[in-house]
Simulated assay, not measured.
Amino acid sequence: MYQLTLDKQDFLNNIWQKKPMIFRQAFKNFADPIAADELAGLACEEEVASRIVVTQNDGKDWQVINGPFEDYDQYGEENWQLLVQAVNHWYPDSQPFVEAFRFLPDWRFDDLMVSFATPGGGVGPHIDQYDVFIIQGEGRRRWTVGDIGSHQQRGGNLTSPLIENFSPIIDDILEPGDMLYIPPGFPHQGFTLTLALSYSIGFRAPSQQELMSQMADYLIDENIGHRRFTSTTNAAGKGVVAQEQQLGMMALIKQLTEDPQYYQTMLGKLLSQNRFELDICEGEPVSAAELTDAIEDGAVLKRIGGLKVLLLENDLQPRLFINGEAFAFDAADAELAKQLSDQTEFSGDALQALHQSASLQALLLELLKKGWFYLADANE
């Protein structure tokens, strides 16, 4: 249903994480995957992360109000924008749209953010530290993008996401189906010209802080990493730490980061987590017999929106990482496990094959129990 018209290999070779670019009619005959009133309804839910940004003082200031929201009448007919995060978690009909971007790996995928904006609405000039594709739905928006470099935060406030105005290298209007790609570090700003729906597909990689924090937590939780620094070299001074000793201590950390037995579990758990809450399917646990009956009746096994099911290449153990947890499977089932990480739903022979594997059948029952997967009728 949603087919990107861009040359994906050329994009990955020449544009990805290198430069911003507009792609005209990236989606031909684009149809909004969600309506404005449905988006507004999602923002009324407490579990859903949402915010309204009101443009003030002739476009010089912005006020942020966090959801949930009961009504929108007070905001008028212009100069505000509603943003709803992780729409793919809560609105299953958006999944076909998300699938169009799975030529990039799932571990990078952050979420689908959808915005409804009135004329004059926007969030101000800012810089994101992740890759983002902005697809224009209904309406028209003007986008400006600046070059990467040193940019001052607005008003000298180091905690503000806003920056001072910048000189644009892109200044253009997006029409329905057009797409703007922005790599990390490039300042940008959207100006709404008419009532508009926009879709932001974000891709994020872990920071040094996140990696170090996760590594430390893993070492503590597993009670490993007790090796201490040793040295026979001393500095020429009672209060001096020799350069060689400094490097030797840091080498202890480097050894941990180069040994798969220390970093693989940490990475798998970190990369399979989500920043936003998932729409867990609550229900009664399914028995093996009930699963068998459901499959024979033509049921479809689906994963909930936003759930990440990851494999690590050359993992020391046969396991899947799902929502921050590790799940082992028999090595003989590696090919089936890869299908479980690649596909978001199963039916017919593909589901039967998973069910007939002893290790993966046990995993399916556990995933159903956790509410991360669910059974649906074939026509749903």
Rank of each mutant, 00 (worst) to 15 (best):
D10M: 12
I15H: 03
K18R: 15
A36S: 12
E46G: 05
V48W: 06
V53T: 12
T55Y: 07
G59F: 00
L82D: 12
N88G: 05
V98M: 13
E99N: 10
V123R: 07
V123P: 02
F133L: 04
I134V: 15
G137I: 06
G146W: 14
G149V: 06
Q153R: 15
N157C: 09
L162N: 10
N165F: 09
P168I: 08
G177D: 04
G177N: 06
L180N: 07
F186D: 02
G190R: 05
L197E: 02
Y199R: 02
A205N: 13
D217L: 15
R228C: 06
R228T: 10
R228N: 07
R228E: 08
T230K: 13
T230V: 02
A235M: 05
G239M: 13
V241C: 12
M249P: 02
L252K: 08
Q255E: 14
R275V: 00
F276R: 01
D279V: 03
C281Q: 15
A288C: 06
A294N: 11
L301R: 05
L301A: 03
L311S: 10
N314Q: 13
N314P: 00
P318T: 08
I322N: 07
D333Y: 07
E335S: 15
A337G: 06
A337T: 09
E345I: 01
G348P: 07
D349V: 14
A350M: 12
H355Y: 14
E366H: 14
L368H: 10
K370T: 02
A376Q: 11
